[in-house]
Design a protein around this nucleic acid. Structure first.
Lengths: 236, 236
DNA sequence: AAATTATTGTGTACTATTGACACATTCCAA
DNA sequence: TTGGAATGTGTCAATAGTACACAATAATTT
């Protein structure tokens, strides 16, 4: 096969920031790196892109290989390419971001792969520029959850409004008014009342809702202005 | 130098979508490709990333080489990596998006490099997946101009409010109410009245404003909710 | 020089949305 | 049965958004 004359071909990695929600705080799925350099240090889920593999497929493969998880929400959020970002050789890293609802997924599979859910607030220092990637991913999450009904990806199929509120409070690290939140979320018309109650509760059982998947497509922009003044930048 | 054992290294290109504003419509800076394949066809500004070059530097270099333009606003918007996107060999393309105010820049330099400003509405078909890139860039512009005071990058140093309004109308392909627009834009506190008038006008001369660069930093999030319901997706 | 036309600058009334807050209800446990 | 903790719903004032009307300016026409 003929090739372009340009001399430089570069190693391409894929790194994944995986967010989960444990009901109280945002969690990250991290792994202890099992090869040199920086072996044993905390790292994002990552791997190298194969010659015959699309970027998104690569991200899904890496997620599956390292966690046993399939069919999860992934989205590309950027590419990191500083010349010296990897000490071994120049490596471009295409960064993906994934949202998982912890409850509905197989915890054993995750553990068997040596992956760990770690609360965002307790995140250890990560290798290379992975901290920057996490920062970017959180910013991406904050942007997108303010504009689109994205948070549902982090919740189980059926959820209560107070759960949803806690999720938003975790994402934006702010308190929201219970009554105003409820009014606003219901007015989107995206929630279907299942009529059931959350049996796990020890006080008044909250009603269980589920996402109206049909309207979700049509009203993907309905969250525009959902969060008044999200604390978007910096953080962490 | 030791290298990773992974066998695949990939050619990395950089492509730039350059938006300009001619006072009426959004323009794209396009070029006729001067090498095979697809030689002579319309294309985005592009080139290959060098071994010792950061991504952003590469984008700036390519912009300068192909247009003679320097110091322009660039931002990475994504990476395209479909296995078959380039028929010659697998090539990843990191896509940047740039905003230029046409009036203040050197038109001769642009022409000398065989680059052409083309109205977005009259965009010819582009090579490879460049049409998808333009679509993504427009979406990116629409998102960001609705959330942040980004439009100013497309206007000259001093501009009138009607000019600014026409820019927004071009970006979102919608009409805005003159009076409400004026009220809203002035209430951001980002505009400084220079006291001067636009002498180019043949009717009532509009007042010239300039951006308050200091507040621009501090109020980068003040445009949140500036455009009511931007027509965000599809387009083109 | 007055009238005309096109465009700019400012104001006002009405409606919708937001933010701050109160009260009644449900469930479990003491 | 009573109290604590959480949920569901409602009210009101303030804010912001929408749809308008009218006066002012500059060049051109009569």
């Amino acid at each position: 096969m003929t090739r372009y004359e340009h001399p430089t071909r570069i190693l391409v990695a894929i790194d994944c920031i995986i967010f989960g929600f444990d009901g109280e705080e945002l969690d990250l799925l991290l792994i202890k790196r099992n090869f040199e350099p920086e072996k044993g240090k905390w790292s994002l889920m990552g791997g190298f892109l194969n010659e015959t593999e699309d970027l998104e497929k690569g991200a899904e493969r890496i997620l599956y290989d390292l966690t046993g998880l399939k069919n999860i929400f992934v989205e590309q959020i950027g590419t990191f390419g500083k010349v010296s970002r990897d000490p071994v050789e120049r490596t471009l890293s295409v960064v993906f971001f994934a949202l998982i609802n912890i409850a509905d997924h197989d915890q054993e599979a995750v553990k068997a792969h040596n992956a760990n859910w770690i609360t965002l607030g307790k995140k250890p220092k990560l290798i290379f520029d992975h901290d920057d990637m996490v920062r970017m991913a959180l910013e991406h999450l904050r942007y997108n959850a303010a504009l689109h009904p994205l948070g549902f990806e982090l919740l189980p199929e059926r959820f209560t409004i107070p759960q949803l509120q806690k999720l938003y409070e975790a994402i934006y690290d702010m308190k929201l008014d219970r009554r105003n939140f409820s009014r606003k979320i219901l007015s989107t018309g995206l929630l279907i009342d299942t009529g059931e109650k959350d049996e796990n509760s020890t006080t008044k059982k909250a009603g269980l809702f589920r996402l109206d998947r049909e309207r979700y497509q049509k009203k993907f922009y309905s969250f525009w202005n959902f969060i008044p003044n999200p604390a978007l930048p910096e953080a962490l």
